[in-house]
Design a protein around this nucleic acid. Structure first.
Length: 348
DNA sequence: CGCTTTTGACCTGCGC
DNA sequence: GCGCAGGTCAAAAGCG
């Protein structure tokens, strides 16, 4: 771990001009927003667009994702997910994905076929699935972040399970899996070959558990400038070691009191969002990101800080951000999310 | 000792 | 069918 940290440290040193901007994979909720004009450009599978989040200051994106929110329809049914309505996820904004619920909900709904696969697994882990059974993909979202740190601290703990060299890129891609046994969320982290200061983090799946907390409820997430550096000394096991194990006390507080995870009454901070396609800069519109009263519980407080008309204009933005929250992006703090990409090719 | 990272091998999907 | 690239596994090693 240390060696790795050393590497990252070196990398950090190389890219010392980072603005620490973080891109939130925002896409999905953008369905309504982009359906009509947003080309799928991330890849053939269909990214719907991004959010350019700027002026992201001290508040984490998570902070404002903490508003209860209706998961976008597109996200609610992108994939046949029996688990989506499982009692276990009640109160969770849901998630289109199912595999993330794999261990729990899937268990109940395990089919003979699946059991068979399990058995096969014992023999050969990678035994191919039935041909007509195309592997289902979890909803995926990519966050583009300007940071020297490769592995963004999102409040969850991750275990690295692989690293691969990426074609046409000098930077390797790392594969992480949520350490929670019942959570099948994965994430890929790679540095942009075009802009080494940009890290693309792709999340696949939805967390089905609360953000891990550090003892005493201390913050896992720290200001960008220190978050990774400070936590890095940790290394392996125990409190979370070198993986992301930072938590926002406040967040945790709400989570424990109200929802299993990711919901809180926190009022979203005012944000400035802009959207544009990855390759089509012409499609670029900035907007002030402000929570919609209809989507935010804490209307009173919110209205105190946001003009009524503003609340109306950004419903979609709010939904998008809330979605991010719903998928477990609870620890993205103190960073500027440059873009959020929706990689849910199933959605559109 | 427990947990994480590293890393080579293997599997899967896709295009040709 | 073949080859390539992406994705995953799991043994070994590292770390606190």
């Amino acid at each position: 771990m240390k060696s790795m940290e050393t590497k990252q440290e070196e990398l950090r040193t190389e890219n010392s001009n980072f603005s620490d901007q973080m891109m939130i994979p925002a896409s999905f909720s953008m369905n309504n927003m982009f359906d009509d004009h947003m080309p799928c450009e991330i890849d053939q599978k269909g990214s719907l667009g991004f959010f350019d989040v700027q002026d992201f200051t001290s508040q984490s994106i998570f902070d404002f994702l903490h508003t209860p929110f209706p998961v976008p329809q597109s996200m609610q049914q992108p994939l046949p997910s029996p688990a989506a309505e499982s009692s276990e996820v009640v109160n969770t904004p849901v998630t289109p994905n199912s595999s993330s619920f794999s261990s729990s909900s899937n268990e109940a709904a395990k089919t003979a076929e699946e059991e068979e696969q399990d058995q096969d697994k014992t023999k050969k882990q990678l035994k191919p699935k039935k041909k007509n059974q195309k592997r289902q993909r979890e909803p995926r979202f990519a966050f583009m972040t300007k940071t020297e740190v490769d592995n963004l601290d999102d409040g969850y703990r991750w275990r690295k399970y692989g690293q691969k060299a990426v074609k046409n890129s000098p930077f390797p891609r790392s594969y992480y899996r949520c350490t929670n046994v019942s959570c099948g969320v994965k994430k890929r982290v790679e540095r942009s070959s075009e802009d080494s200061s940009t890290v693309v983090t792709t999340y696949e799946g939805t967390h089905i558990h609360p953000c891990p907390i550090t003892p005493r409820g201390s913050f896992g997430i720290m200001p960008e400038t220190t978050t990774f550096g400070g936590s890095r000394g940790g290394g392996g096991g125990g409190g979370g070691g070198g993986t992301s194990s930072y938590i926002i006390p406040q967040v945790q507080h709400y989570q424990q009191q109200q929802r299993p995870y990711f919901h809180s009454l926190m009022t979203p901070p005012l944000m400035k969002f802009s959207t544009n396609s990855i390759s089509n800069s012409s499609f670029h519109q900035e907007r002030t990101f402000r929570p919609s009263s209809s989507l935010v519980r804490d209307d009173g407080l919110l209205q105190d800080m946001v003009p009524p008309q503003m609340l109306k204009d950004s419903k979609e933005d709010v939904k998008s951000v809330n979605y991010l929250l719903s998928i477990g992006m609870c620890g993205l703090t103190n960073r500027v999310i440059i873009r959020v990409l929706d990689l849910n090719y199933d959605v559109k």
